[in-house]
Computed example of a mutant assay.
Amino acid sequence: MQFGARGFANTGVRDIAAEASVNPALVLRYYGSKEGLFRAALDHSIFMDPVFALEPGTMGQRIVEIFLAANEMPSPLSMMILSAGDPTAHAISVRALDEKVIRPLADYLDGPDAEARAACLNLLWSGFLTAWKLLPIAPLSDDRLPMIAGWLADATQAIVDGKFGPKGSPSAP
Rank of each mutant, 00 (worst) to 15 (best):
A89I: 05
I63M: 10
E72G: 11
E72M: 06
A89Y: 01
M79L: 11
F3A: 03
N71V: 12
A84D: 11
T88H: 11
C120Y: 07
I46C: 08
Q157A: 04
L37K: 00
P112Q: 10
P170I: 06
S171L: 14
S45T: 13
A69V: 07
R103H: 09
A70E: 12
L28R: 09
R14H: 12
L97Y: 03
A84K: 01
T130C: 06
I81P: 01
D113F: 04
W151G: 06
A118M: 03
L135H: 05
G162T: 04
I148Y: 08
W151F: 14
E115G: 04
A69L: 05
P166Y: 15
Y30P: 04
D86F: 02
A96Q: 02
R144F: 10
N71T: 11
K100I: 10
V22F: 01
T130I: 06
G57P: 04
G162P: 06
G168F: 04
V13M: 04
W151L: 14
L124F: 08
I66P: 08
G7S: 03
C120L: 13
R29D: 10
S83N: 06
L140V: 09
I92P: 00
P24R: 01
D110V: 11
S78I: 03
N10Q: 13
P56W: 02
P24F: 00
M80I: 12
L121R: 00
C120S: 11
A106F: 04
P50N: 03
D161P: 03
F128I: 05
A53Q: 14
E65W: 11
K167T: 14
L82I: 10
F47W: 09
A116T: 07
A114F: 06
L42D: 01
D15G: 07
V160N: 01
C120A: 15
I63Q: 01
P87K: 08
N10P: 02
I148S: 05
Q2Y: 13
C120T: 06
D110T: 12
S93G: 07
V94N: 09
A149Q: 03
G12N: 05
A155S: 12
A114D: 11
R62T: 08
S93I: 04
L97S: 06
G32E: 10
